[in-house]
Amino acid sequence: MYETNYTRAKDAADAAKKSKAADDAAYLSGGMTLLPTMKQRLAAPSDLIDLTHIKGMNAITVSRKQVTIGATATHAEVATNAKLMKVCPSLSSLAAHIGDPHVRNRGTIGGSIANNDPAADYPSAMIALDATIVTNKRKLKAEKFFVGLFETALKEDEFVKEISFTAPKSGAYAKFPNPASRYAMAGVFVAHHGGTKAKPEIRVGITGASQDGVYRAKDMEKALAANFAPEALDGCTVDEGNMLSDIHGSAAYRANLVKVMAKRAVAAAG
């Protein structure tokens, strides 16, 4: 790891100020991605600004169906929050299956979505839950936030403060983990938001598989709005041309896996 300076931000304004003042700052949350990247010398920020000591920024609040999760809430905190588990068990379960217990004790939801790893779990949930990403500067919808592989709409000095969403009527996340890394080879989050009988609102977010990172599967949403059942997806095709292809799985394999996981998610959502 190259030399770096470590500081703790006292509050949101202090974080932005410290980031502006530094040559080439990076925000630090759980460090579960950033520190390994720095060790490999793929990143060399001059300054690390630790967000995890900002009071209250890890708070999880649930009021009826309205959920707000602070950016520095760890995966373990999200997984075990009793109120969240009641209104949105699909997200609790997603968090409980990220990496391993030690990673979950440090890694945060803010760090995960800011990093936008194409194999990360949370981005698919943010899309399917139609979450709002709240930064220190603005609010934007998840679909606008995730731009591409490891790319988000975050500008310089901007950071994620919290995310919020309305809990769906039902939902589920189905993930096929890479057996070694536990990252998703394909992960599908399906959320049924109710709507009307004539026009049910379904959202589907897919991670792990596409070359462009997380994406919304509108064709699947349409099929599921007509019939919310696994077999409704039989007629959907997943374009191999857009799938990642690597030693772990070919594009064709991933395209098939997306459909299998989508069906499992629908079955689990019930």
């Binding site: 470590y6 630090l28 460090g31 579960m32 520190l35 390994p36 690390l48 630790d50 995890t52 373990a76 217990p101 030690h102 990673v103 004790n105 440090r106």
Partner: peptide
């Protein structure tokens, strides 16, 4: 490298002493 920090298991190779 797992140790407990404030009662929680963490990988001490992926945390700065300063943290």
């Amino acid at each position: 490298c797992v140790v407990h920090v404030d009662g929680k298991a963490v990988k001490s190779c992926t945390m700065l002493a300063a943290q």
